[in-house]
Design a protein around this nucleic acid. Sequence first.
DNA 1: CCAATATCGATTGTCGACAATTACAGCTAT
DNA 2: ATAGCTGTAATTGTCGACAATCGATATTGG
Lengths: 221, 221
Amino acid sequence: MEARHTLADQTFEQLQTAIIQGRLIPGSKINEQELASQYGISRGPLREALQRLEQRRLIERIPHVGARVIKLTANHLHDLYQVRAELEAMACRIAASSISDQQLIELEQLLDRQQQAFQSEQLTSLQDDIDFHVGVLNACGNQTLINTLCGDLYHQLQIYRHQCISSRRPLQALAQHRQILAALKQRDGELAALLMRRHIEAGAANTAKVLAAKLEDFQDE
Amino acid sequence: MEARHTLADQTFEQLQTAIIQGRLIPGSKINEQELASQYGISRGPLREALQRLEQRRLIERIPHVGARVIKLTANHLHDLYQVRAELEAMACRIAASSISDQQLIELEQLLDRQQQAFQSEQLTSLQDDIDFHVGVLNACGNQTLINTLCGDLYHQLQIYRHQCISSRRPLQALAQHRQILAALKQRDGELAALLMRRHIEAGAANTAKVLAAKLEDFQDE
DNA sequence: CCAATATCGATTGTCGACAATTACAGCTAT
DNA sequence: ATAGCTGTAATTGTCGACAATCGATATTGG
């Protein structure tokens, strides 16, 4: 509950989750007046929120014309995952030589909790996967790398992952996370990077398949 | 002269160059009222410009407190160049297999023009170096990669590069650019990536050295 | 004399109204 | 009937003023 208690920030967060969850459908136009009164605020803070969404590439704005939610395309998805794989592999390579024993323990505990939660509830959350990746990221210590992934790319990715919930394979993902963690433990950066790249590419292929099916259905535009 | 003719955009551009050129000194506080009247506009558009500068990490804002220009630190510089090297090496790897003959020719012509300009005027512009890198980037075709570098990282880097004009070695840089281009011509992605990484790391070391000297002088805080 | 607190000034956040630009509808002319 | 133009309505950009919050100074109690 990270409260930056300003209306613009709150509205930004709400709009972001609305977009990620698909409540604001991709490609639809955004009316400032309408949204503002809908959220019970003025157009000032709303415009600030919209601008931040634009910088995160969740919406597209044209001066004097307006804002639209971004559309989902196979190309965009491909580009996103390609950059993500490269950067997270890099994070692994760095983290392997800089991660602390404490951080290693925390990551292991995180995976244990997730495995336990899965065995009992049998349902997995998208957040679980993200938590592990963010953990590795933080361990690498490169703030620019962290900002680039957490501040920009992850939010765009979440749109696709939420739209394409897919036949996700949480057990497989969990096993891959354990492999990556083992490599980090052994300070084998190259192996960790390789495993991370494969893990992400598997997820990309999976998401892309579901997206293709979805785009097939909506033959519109 | 890419005109997005809205006051907020114009002000954003002007403020950005002001920061990059060091006219707004790093770490200094920003007064909205003062800046607004200085640019002859209202606080509305100015705040939009400030917010975009914040997203590009050229300034830092705290709610109800205000905005400050970012400070230059050796750590930040290191992180920036590390990510940049990785991403541009990646761009080379992709571009090697996707660049068109036309694009190859244009890059060569660009380098020819730069060499000619250098031989006649004996002075080199920072923009020349950027132009080549952007050219390679565009050739790779990954829009996410392009956005990440051009939209975020480059602007932060330019602050350091402008502050640390350094004993730049334009001839050496030009030669390295030619080597990279040659590798691209031969469709040797791995070689191009390697050369690009070395080229960037050389620039990083150079800039870091100058920055260290600068920080030595300003022993403040 | 120092510390904690209250008050004041300054700065930021928010609002409603006005100006500028665009999109659409209807009309005219070919 | 369609292409181009024109006027109007709707939407976005901009402004000035008000409200909320923070930092610094002054004050009071120990």
